[in-house]
Every structure is written in structure tokens, then in C-alpha cells.
Design a protein around this nucleic acid. Structure first.
Lengths: 225, 225
DNA sequence: GTCTATATCTAGATAGAC
DNA sequence: GTCTATCTAGATATAGAC
């Protein structure tokens, strides 16, 4: 008896139902106020069943984050494939991320709190987040490898990792951004990205060599161990 | 009947006893595993009494943070008063902070998780953290105002706020630093501080004017709203 | 104003039966 | 896979003692 590998098993269906219900409730009444009982009840399941699929309430958030991340990377692929300059592509990728996250700004902060704890599976540096991290890193590697922007060879090597870290910082900025529609974060991108392009471009000039080398040493220290 | 203003009232004593007991237990068995019942019991008090002084378990962490912060600022005052160059003083202030935090690295991460949540009273940007923030900011203002290091006037204006933010970032780096004795964080300070001094010094040069202005615009965006 | 004791509520998480 | 019952721990409420 053959089964369509694309067809969802019953378990996968239940799993998806739980995440979707949870996210909906998180958005409606916030993360704290959404109880596991409420999630289970709204999904027409028992609490025990929800815990059969997700070991904790936090892990629901992790799952959701992974889904968003995959979606972001898919869009980023398209943006990079469409061509354009370094700033244009990088801005596009970052803005696409903001667009995706936008509906969830209200409880994004809660997620940051969960993710910031070192050693937790939700930490961006954890083993469990390796998939999301690699996904993200690969995009920036593609972007840097493809760009026609001239830069120091060593800078080119370190840049993807730096961009990945910068994106983390951007998310932190975004969750704390209470301007309408998080416009401030968008302004930050529009200011920082061309500035970065300029700095990266300068790395080729001999006069800046010393500063570039020192800057690279700094960036290397910032890389996760 | 006069009372010594320095003498602790009974309430203050109890308050301190609770925090000290909590911190000890946090260090011994971790934040999660330390229950309010255990804290109260170890301090020889009732749970209700602990809640009389602290509205939540998290607030115990906040109180502890404030105490460390005050201690840090006291040491920073001394370091600045002792004189020295910009790098020397800044490195001293940052290293003094690390020395203080050192014994608590194991559960520092937990604190970060609490503090990272936007809008929470533990957030460094919150109303409740205003005292700690002002304390910290004032130190950096003193440092920048006193230094003989020549720099662009506008840079001098923005620098204290930037240093405050950088310190936040440093703490995040530190909690994730799993090198022995968090040596990596110290290396980061030793690398980044002189680099910053160089950059700041360059801000006076006419050739860098355009980059300085753009950098300032960026820093202004980074300031908490 | 400080403190105790006890009962109770809430919600995350687990165990064991089916 | 799914359920019900139960446990744990943060937090609150109440009533009262000093």
C-alpha cells in the first residue's frame, strides 16, 4: 500500500492545527494570557494531547519561528535572484523579514525573551536552532558572493556572519520599536545599509588598511564560538 | 527621639535578607529550581512576607541587578577620578563591571531573558529601570566630558548614549560567552575600546566628515525613543 | 507598618489509563 | 494518540498577631 509522501499524516495535521491555533490566540490575546488549556480547547483537543506534540508552551513559539524563517528565506532567494546592487538586495531581504514579522510585533517581544536565554533550545546559537541559522547564513553568503560590490577579500569572507549578527540586532531593535508600524526600524535599515556599503567599499583603499584589519579582528571576536 | 538615618529599619533588614537568600539559592540551584517557598523557608519567613516586599520572583532579580549596578557605578567613579586616557578609563569601567558580575554568570542568562522582554519593568528601557539607566549614563557622560581625547563636538554629544548601548551589547555577549572565566569578553573589550578611541579621534579629520555625519545619524536612530 | 499562617487560584507540565 | 486526573509552583486573599 503506497502513500503519497506529500500527504499529511494524522499526526502532522494535529501538530499543524495546534501551532495555528496557538499563533492565532497569541495574536488575539497575547502570549501570557493564552493558556495551554485555551489552545487545546480552541483546537478541540485535550491539554495532554497538545503536550504530546510540544514539550512546552515555548516550543510552540520555536516552531512558529522556524516556519516564519523558512518563509523569509524563500522570499530572500527571490529577491537575490532578481538582481540589483548590494544595498538594494540587502535592504530588500531585511525589509521582507519585517513584512513577515509585522503581524506578530505585539508578542514578538515575548519571543525575544525566550530566545535570549543562553543555552536554551530557542537561543539562536543553540544546536536546535542550527537549521534556522544555517538557512539564514546561506542567504547572506549568496548575497555577498554574488554582489558586484568591490571589497577587501577578507571582508568578503567575514561579511555574511556579520550580516547574520546584524540581523539579530535588528530584530532586537524591532521588538523594542514602538513607532507606528515600526517605521523607525525601516528608517534604520535605510540608513545603515548604504552606510555599510560605503564602509565595505572603503575597505579596499590602502589608507584604511589598518582600520580594516582591526575591524576584522573585532568582527571575528563577535562570531559565535 | 532621633534615629540614625543610616540605620536599617526592620523592614529594610528583612528586604535585604530576602534578596540575599534568593541570590544565594539562585546561585546554588539555579533560578528556575529555586521556588518562592524555598526562599521564604531558607530566610525563615513566610511566603506571604516575601510577597509583601517583592511583587514577583522576577522583581527579586531586578532588585539584585540594581544593587550590582550601584556597586559598579561606585567603582566606576573611582576609576574615572583616578585619571588616565580615554581607553584606559573606559576599559577600566567595563572590566570592573565584569569583575562584579563574574560570580553570577551561570544565571545571568536567565536575567537577560527577563530583561529582554520589551515593556517589562525589568527592561533596561523601562520606567522602572530609569534609576539604573541614569546612573549608568551619568558615568559615561562624566568619562566623555573629562577626557582629553580630541573629537568632533557632535560625536562628543552622542558618545555617552552610544557607550551605554554598547555596554548593553557587551552584557549580552558576556552571558553567551562560555569561554573559561569569560576571557573572550575581556579580549573583546581590549580590542574594541582602543578601536573606538581611534575612530572617535578620526572624527575630527575633514576627510572623514561625510562618514562621521552619516555615522552620527545612525547612532541617533539607535538611541532609545 | 511588619509579619505569620492557611487556604485558594491559576496555569504549565506530567502520569497513567484507554 | 488521546484522554482525565494530578502535581507543582507562582501568586493572591484573608484573617489575624505584634
Amino acid at each position: 500500500m503506497e502513500t503519497d509522501p506529500k500527504a499529511e499524516t494524522r499526526g502532522e495535521q494535529t501538530r499543524r492545527l495546534i501551532v495555528e491555533t496557538a499563533i492565532r490566540l497569541f495574536g488575539e490575546v497575547g502570549y501570557e494570557k493564552t493558556t495551554m488549556r485555551a489552545i487545546a480547547s480552541a483546537a478541540g483537543l485535550s491539554v495532554g494531547n497538545a503536550y504530546y506534540y510540544f514539550p512546552s508552551k515555548d516550543s510552540l513559539v520555536t516552531e512558529f519561528y522556524l516556519q516564519l524563517q523558512r518563509e523569509h528565506m524563500a522570499r530572500a532567494e527571490e529577491i537575490i535572484a532578481a538582481g540589483g546592487g548590494f544595498s538594494e538586495q540587502l535592504t530588500g531581504v531585511l525589509m521582507a523579514g519585517l513584512d513577515l514579522w509585522d503581524p506578530y510585533h505585539s508578542f514578538g517581544g515575548r519571543f525575544i525573551g525566550i530566545a535570549a536565554v543562553p543555552g536554551s533550545p530557542t537561543s539562536p546559537f543553540s544546536e536546535e536552532s542550527a537549521e534556522a541559522r544555517e538557512l539564514s547564513l546561506r542567504i547572506f553568503e549568496r548575497l555577498v558572493a554574488d554582489t558586484s560590490l568591490k571589497m577587501d577579500a577578507e571582508v568578503r569572507e567575514e561579511l555574511p556572519e556579520l550580516l547574520w549578527l546584524a540581523q539579530l540586532g535588528l530584530v532586537v531593535y524591532w521588538v523594542h520599536d514602538r513607532s507606528p508600524g515600526q517605521q523607525r526600524t525601516r528608517t534604520l535599515i535605510e540608513t545603515a545599509v548604504p552606510y555599510l556599503e560605503s564602509l565595505v567599499g572603503l575597505s579596499r583603499m590602502k589608507v584604511f588598511r589598518a582600520m580594516t584589519v582591526r575591524g576584522l579582528a573585532l568582527v571575528k571576536l563577535l562570531r559565535p564560538v
